[in-house]
Design a protein around this nucleic acid. Structure first.
Lengths: 201, 201
DNA sequence: GCGTTGCGATACTCAACCGTATCGAAATTA
DNA sequence: TAATTTCGATACGGTTGAGTATCGCAACGC
């Protein structure tokens, strides 16, 4: 999106409504969270839901993808707090947060877009990775790094593989399991124990 | 789809063309593989691509999702051959096949649908799991079971977690990696070694 | 040959939505 | 106050595709 680039140019006339902009983005996110795919998302529906004229949308974004990219970018992804008591404890907290997220419709649908429409809307997935995936991966990486430095884990641990195995295992369950409710209650523990048992000295 | 249910009732008139049916399903799959999402898939486009009248489609399926479900069901998923020399060897072959599949546009797009449109088209994902995911999971499970029985793996191995960790790790790389080409060449080996090191006696 | 049903093709109505234009009111600067 | 720009609303033409109907021909059982 283009904002004013010339610094302190005071444009005459009525300024753009910050509130309308927020309403538009909120409406877009809400519709995505309701299960509407990017392809079916219509500008008219977003405008109606936001209580805004179509013009107000077209004045800011020239097409749908730009709008959705901005909407995704506005998402703050709260990363689970990892107190650093032990690698096992942090990893379990991390995985539990992943599992909890997977039950939020909002997170679910946004992840669906990131996963399923990645080939059709590359910018979008790129943005998603940058905002959601990368910081979480960094958090997990630092846990494992710390474990290596503290001697809790072997010095030759393949960190990227460990991250992939931990996240991937949870992803596997949350996406491909036949029905969620039959998952073991201690799923994060079991994943952590399985992977970490191969990483200890 | 409804087939004749009353056994050997010979209906009068011209029989339905088996060829047309195949052409329709092939066209639908081809379009999906071309990157068309289920939502954008139009009956008219399918008919045109299949060289078939719209009527011929509507005579068989009452809506789009039914057709796509049938299309998915028609996919034969070739499962990699696992010669059973060793657990490590089989696992690596399995993972390598996963990675190779992820580069086929056909597999990619079908997986995208299964992943991304799962909430919107539940029947579809259910069918996908049944046809694609389950048999592969069984194949991997039997490899691990065999390893346990042969003493190659510990007797108390958490089989489901091992399956999830192995498949999930590969999935993680194929879906969430920033760019595929910088993946290590021995990715299957490294995943297998990391996970299996925690499963050995 | 006759009745029946499927075939591909075409035409049709109906709805959704795109992107633009226009309107009077509101908000802001000069 | 005047000029300017945005606001929400509405209207407009154009496109796409759904789902139905109809057509003349093809394929089958009797």
């Amino acid at each position: 999106m283009v904002t004013e680039q010339t610094g302190t140019v005071r444009t005459p006339g009525r300024p753009r409504s910050e509130k309308a902009e927020k309403a538009i983005i909120d409406a877009a996110i809400a519709m995505i969270a309701d299960g509407t795919g990017v392809a079916e998302l219509s500008i008219e529906a977003i405008a109606a839901r936001a209580g805004v004229g179509k013009t107000t949308i077209y004045r800011r974004w020239s097409n749908k993808e730009e709008l959705v990219v901005d909407a995704l970018a506005s998402l703050k992804a709260p990363i689970p707090e990892l107190p650093g008591l032990s690698v096992r404890d942090d990893v379990i907290r991390y995985l539990a947060a992943m599992q909890a997220d997977s039950h939020s419709p909002r997170t679910r649908c946004i992840m669906n877009i990131a996963l399923g429409e990645s080939d059709r809307f590359p910018h979008l997935t790129e943005r998603f990775r940058e905002i959601v995936v990368r910081p979480r991966r960094e958090a997990l990486r630092s846990v494992i790094q710390r474990g290596v430095e503290s001697g809790e884990l072997r010095p030759d641990v393949d960190v990227e593989m460990a991250i992939a195995a931990l996240s991937g295992a949870m992803m596997f369950f949350t996406k491909w399991r036949d029905n969620d409710d039959e998952l073991p209650a201690d799923l994060p523990d079991r994943i952590a124990d399985l992977i970490l048992s191969g990483l200890r000295p």
